[in-house]
């Protein structure tokens, strides 16, 4: 066991964790922040994507202890039901989901893309989302949503 302290969505959190505790387990099971999903648990599907010191990572493949001192942003930290993040709003408007299971990871990875490249091409979006699997949509509307979010975020900036 060890004590970890990290910043999650702007708030300092301290917890006792087993050495084998994964960041995604800390989020979902210890902190009951269940917006971050576990799809495959094998670093493939991207449903568990969070921002880790500003970069999108798969939280099923990071130990809680590796996150000691880190700044983590989850899907709960970017918007609310009343005030969606522009990427969430764009997924809603462009119907960038069907069952919605992969959506938190898609949104978080797209947020990372747009903070690093505010004007991505369709090719950029498709390449960036390679590590996020959606088994419903065929990706078309997801890509549309990210491109739409890029437009609305630039218009607001």
């Amino acid at each position: 066991m060890a004590t970890v302290t990290l910043t999650i969505n702007g708030e300092k959190v301290t917890r006792e964790v087993e050495n084998r505790r994964l960041l995604v387990q800390l989020l979902r099971e210890d902190l009951r922040m269940t917006g971050t999903h576990v799809g495959c648990d094998t670093t493939q599907c991207g449903c568990c994507t969070v921002l880790f010191n500003g970069d999108a990572v798969k939280s099923c493949t990071v130990l809680a202890q590796q996150a000691d001192g880190a700044d983590v942003v989850t899907i709960e930290g970017i918007g609310t039901a009343e005030k969606l993040h522009p990427v969430q709003q764009a997924f809603h408007e462009k119907h960038g989901l069907q069952c919605g299971f992969c959506t938190p990871g898609m949104v978080m990875n797209s947020v990372d893309l747009l903070q690093k490249n505010p004007s991505p091409s369709e090719q950029d979006v498709r390449h960036w989302l390679e590590g996020n699997l959606c088994r419903c949509t065929g990706y078309h509307n997801i890509v549309e949503a990210v491109l739409h979010a890029a437009d609305t975020m630039k218009a607001k900036a």
Binding site: G46, V57, K58, D112, E130, G131
Partner: peptide, 9 residues
């Protein structure tokens, strides 16, 4: 290598 998230770690 891998994908964006893997390249970040």
């Amino acid at each position: 290598i891998g994908d964006v998230q893997v390249r970040h770690r």
